[in-house]
């Protein structure tokens, strides 16, 4: 990947188009609020520009942005500012298909430590070792959380929607 030390307009536009959707989904997984996910999106990109990070390749860029997004979400969850002024998330995920919405809702009902592992594994397609690195955790912990999350989902899902 070509290095972009000057953070030109085309590079910034490309950066947003490459990663904005991914950040929105990760932030939604943590915060369960579209509005808060949009805030995280802005914060992550501002951090990228502030740090003027030069990435070795596309995968390095993506994983760095995921780590920043995860940290921003954790900070947001800790923030008394958010607790005071934005205590409510979306009532239901903004998804048109009812069945898809129900499954996403079931995942969102899980504790956040399970949600993010499920998301990175199933949606982003990361291996457990890679998730452990992204979340600065142990691979065994990721595996356990993944297993536990599947068990909890299976016990909640009706009609065999978990077709893994």
């Amino acid at each position: 990947m070509e290095q972009e030390p000057n953070y030109t307009d085309p590079y910034l536009a490309g950066l947003v188009h490459r990663h904005a959707d991914m950040i929105m989904r990760i932030a939604y997984t943590y915060l369960k609020s579209t509005a808060d996910a949009q805030d995280i999106c802005q914060e992550v990109f501002l951090k990228v520009v502030k740090h003027r990070k030069t990435f070795e390749n596309a995968e390095h860029e993506k994983s760095w942005i995921i780590r920043v997004a995860v940290n921003c979400c954790k900070d947001a969850l800790r923030s008394p500012w958010r607790r005071l002024f934005s205590p409510f998330g979306d009532a239901m995920p903004p998804i048109a298909d009812k069945q898809n919405q129900e499954v996403v809702s079931l995942v969102m009902d899980l504790p956040k430590k399970y949600r993010i592992v499920l998301h990175l594994y199933y949606f982003e397609g990361y291996a457990t070792a890679e998730i452990a690195e992204l979340l600065q955790s142990k691979e065994a912990t990721v595996r356990t959380r993944l297993k536990r999350a599947r068990e909890m989902l299976k016990s909640n899902l009706i009609g065999g929607l978990a077709n893994e």
């Binding site: 996403v104 949606f123 077709n163």
Partner: peptide, 8 residues
């Protein structure tokens, strides 16, 4: 988990 992926 296909429905989760499609929904997300």
């Amino acid at each position: 988990m296909n429905r989760y992926v499609e929904g997300m």
